[in-house]
Amino acid sequence: MTASVDIGNVDLTYKGVSGGVLALKGTTLNVERGEFAAVVGPSGCGKSSLMKLVTGLVPADTGEIVIFGDKVRGPVKIAGMAFQNPNLLPWRKVVDNVLLPLEIVQPHRQRFRSHKAEYREQARALLATVGLDGFGERYPWELSGGMQQRVSLCRALIHQPALLMLDEPFAALDAFTREELWCVLRDLWQKLRFTVILVTHDLREAAFLADTIHVMSARPGRIVMSKPVDLRRPRDLDICFEPQFIEIVHELRAKIAEVRQA
């Protein structure tokens, strides 16, 4: 397999009012095409900075980021993103929220007006795969938090991005809804096989979903451990109670406790 995301020895400083803050130092990360990677770490370790770097929203001070063979210079156009807050547009119906990326990204942008019906059908089909069949004509505020987050996932995926960036997408949900959405994401990924970078606080979430888990150090962040997850696929939620799974979570926990003290 070829690398889809290749972060090589990157430093990143945020220029704030009270001087610069070194967010990342010597960060190196490798994600293969179609791989599901998770990044975990103590809070404030620069996980979100990593997201902005990979999508080209902020430039690195030093080092190089290569995505699908191209060096990142400005915002990359092949990424879908979803965050903890679903950030839906309240004045748009659910289906129009999902369609938003197609109004912006090429080549759909040009075709959008003339092929609107076809695109709406696509959006409805995608909504159906996350269990929101028939909710397209509702407004976001009529949906529960978990449903809104599903819409947000659909919006991130409608333009079939090669890379999906998730920044704690399930952190604000209750435990049951969260596990439900793990399965939604698992199924979507198994069907569409995009590359995923999932930033999370939840070690079980990382272990359940990812192929590889990368542990970041405290600020300034860098990757201190990359743990492959050798659990069988497809995984179901019962796997969370198997010894092998629990062992992985324990190991990650110990590592994070260690870097927090350092």
Partner: peptide
């Protein structure tokens, strides 16, 4: 405007004008 929403759009290659008109 929510910065995350702006990030979502910028990561799609939206220009400033797009972000203004759509959001």
């Amino acid at each position: 405007m929510e910065p995350e929403l702006e990030d979502v759009l910028r990561a799609l290659g939206a220009r400033k004008l797009d972000i203004m008109l759509k959001v």
